[in-house]
Structures are given as C-alpha cells and as structure tokens.
Design a protein around this nucleic acid. Structure first.
Lengths: 190, 190
DNA sequence: GTCTATATAATGATAGAC
DNA sequence: GTCTATCATTATATAGAC
C-alpha cells in the first residue's frame, strides 16, 4: 500500500469547506477531488459509500467540534455564565470566519432524502439549544424564558449568516452577535 | 403553433416552488419538467437560455410579488404603522407556508457564479430593508435604531426558516415572528 | 493508498416533426 | 407551443495496475 498523503482530519476539513460553500449537490466529486488533492478513486477508497459518506463524515466531524469547542465550554467551564456566552460567540465568529462562511446546518439540510444526515444536524441543533437553555436557567431564567432566548439566539446566528452571504456586508454577523449577546441577558420588558 | 398548455404565471410559480425546495443545483431539468408538466424541450422554448433563465424568471417574479404584496403596503397603506407591520407578517407567513417553505433569498444565493441572480436577490433584500427602516422612522426611531431593528427582523425571518427546516418544529417561525413584532416596536432598554 | 482508465447514469441542451 | 429523439458533457462510481 502506498503511503497516505493526507490525514483523516485534514481530509475531512477540506471536504467540509467545500460542502459548506457549495451545498450537497454543488459539491461534485470533481471539486471534492480538487480541494482534497486526491483522485476520485482515492476518495472512494477512504469513503466506500461515496459522496453521501463524505458528507456524513463531515457532519460527524463538525458535530464533534461543536461539542468540544462550543457546548462543553458553555456548560462546564468555571467561568461566569456571561463570560462563557461571550467565549461561545468568539468561537463561532472564528468558525464562521466573521460570518463569511456558511453553516453546515443550513446548507446540508436543503433538498431531499438525506435522512441520516438531517437527523445528525437536528441533534446538533438540539444539543446546542439545550446547552444555551441550561446557561439561561443558571442566570435565573425560567425554562420557558431560557428556551425562548436560546432559540432566538440560534435563529439570529443562522439568519445573520444568510443575510451576510446575501449582502456581502461584513458587519452583519458581527453586529447581530453583539445585539444578541445583550438581548440574551437583558431584563424583560413589556 | 400548438396552444400554450400552461400560462406564464403558473409556469413560473411551479418553477419557483421547485427552486425554493431544492436549490439551484438540486432543481434539475428532469424535475423542472416534471413539476411544470412541460417536456424539457418545451421549457427551452419558453426559456431559451435554459435553467439559468428559469431561475432568473423566478427571481424576477418573486421580486415583483415582494414589492406588490410586502413593500408597497408597508410604505403606502393608510393603516397605522403597527397594523402595516402586522399585515406584512401575515403576508410572509402565508408566503412561507407558516415557515415550512424556504426563502429563495437563502437557497438561490448558495454556490457560485450566479452574479445576475445574486444582484437581484441583494436588491430585494435592500428594498425590503429600506421599507422597514422607513416605517421605523415613522414611529419615531432615528436612522440608526430603525436600521438596526429592521436588520434584526430580516435576520430573524431567514434564521427562523432555517431552524424550522432543521427541526421540523412548526412553531419556530410563528414564535419568532410574534417575538420580533414585539421587539421591533419595544422601548429601548439598557 | 493512490493512481489511470473506464463504466454507467444523469444532466443541461438541441434538432426537427407535428 | 409541445413533443420525441438525440447530443455532448458531467456526474457518480468501479476495476485493476502500481
């Protein structure tokens, strides 16, 4: 066997960047081959079930990152809740390249017949949501209010990414996150 | 010449529904043919430049609807501002089928090399934004605050649609819109 | 494990009959 | 204006050499 020219992690990261910029159908094998530097047949060697396998591997990889870099620190770090929330915002800002890159939750949930992948994406969302709700309750919100604010935050993340892609206005994501940071912890008003 | 079996309006509406559910790449000619009931060659007769032409026609069609059903009533109706805002929310709720259908601004702005279409989508967003800002100022906001709240609302629309698609939770869009309605007109807090 | 070469199916697009 | 038939290209996928 010839030696592996690209390790699993780098490989999946390359696939990920293409999938999130072009979506599932837009990420053709020719492009996947190009961005990874591996010929198509080599991709099939690493992912026997083909493109669907690659997308699934990407989702699992991102899922792990979400848990390690976002959810875990959000729940378990010793920092104050507000600080943990701010850390999360900083993390996702980097992850989305200041709002210039798409979220895989959006682009891979488009279209049809990707049941397994959709289930994974749904779970990621719910886990992230649960972590935010936990933090909300920690700062005194009741379940209902914590859920409402957490959902609002995640809606804002996805929406800001869409609008920034649409307008090419680099401030959209940044401004939204600053806004939502304040709103999440704000006092209720009538 | 044989008679036209589907009028322009119905035709574009059918194309639109497919494009918004599958995205540009996901809307293949085979599917476009299927949903319109026209053979591929007939589609080419109606849209000589092919698929790109169809997408452009769809965007122009939706653009007109946005102006007629959303923007115009938002700016010019004799109703009170709050009532006009509520009417807009009702209109888009119907348009997105209670949040169960995608926004073309999201799904068609994915991917590459659709300059003309992206420009049209960008313009639609900006026109809608301008109308909301105008309304905000009408109820006493300064330019900065009106823009901020208007952007927040449109971010919420796009975000809620993404999250509802992701979770299949039919309440997401509805709840978001109720939330944002209140937030748009709320008193500023610290 | 990666490659070249190839198979097979689908895609976007045309030609020409009616 | 729509259709059947066909084209060229690209897509996903496989076989087999090294």
């Amino acid at each position: 066997m010839a030696h592996q020219t690209i390790n699993d992690n780098t490989l999946v990261e390359s696939l990920f960047e293409l999938f999130r910029s072009r979506g599932y159908e837009g990420a053709t094998l020719a492009l996947l081959s190009e961005v990874t530097g591996l010929k198509k047949s080599s991709l099939y060697h690493r992912f026997p079930a083909g493109k669907y396998d690659m997308a699934k591997a990407v989702v699992l990889h991102i899922s792990a990152q979400l848990h390690n870099l976002v959810i875990e620190p959000l729940i378990n770090s010793k920092e104050a809740p507000k600080k943990r929330f701010n850390n999360m915002v900083a993390t996702i800002k980097a992850f989305y390249c200041d709002g210039n890159k798409n979220c895989i939750l959006n682009v891979l949930s488009l279209g049809e017949a990707k049941a397994e992948i959709n289930a994974l994406l749904n779970k990621d969302y719910n886990d992230w949501l649960a972590a935010l709700i936990k933090l909300g309750k920690e700062v005194g919100m009741n379940q209902q209010e914590a859920r409402k604010r957490s959902e609002r935050f995640l809606v804002a993340v996805q929406g800001a990414l869409v609008i920034q892609r649409l307008t090419n206005n680099a401030k959209t994501f940044k401004n939204s996150m600053e806004d939502e940071q304040k709103l999440f912890f704000s006092q209720k008003t009538g």
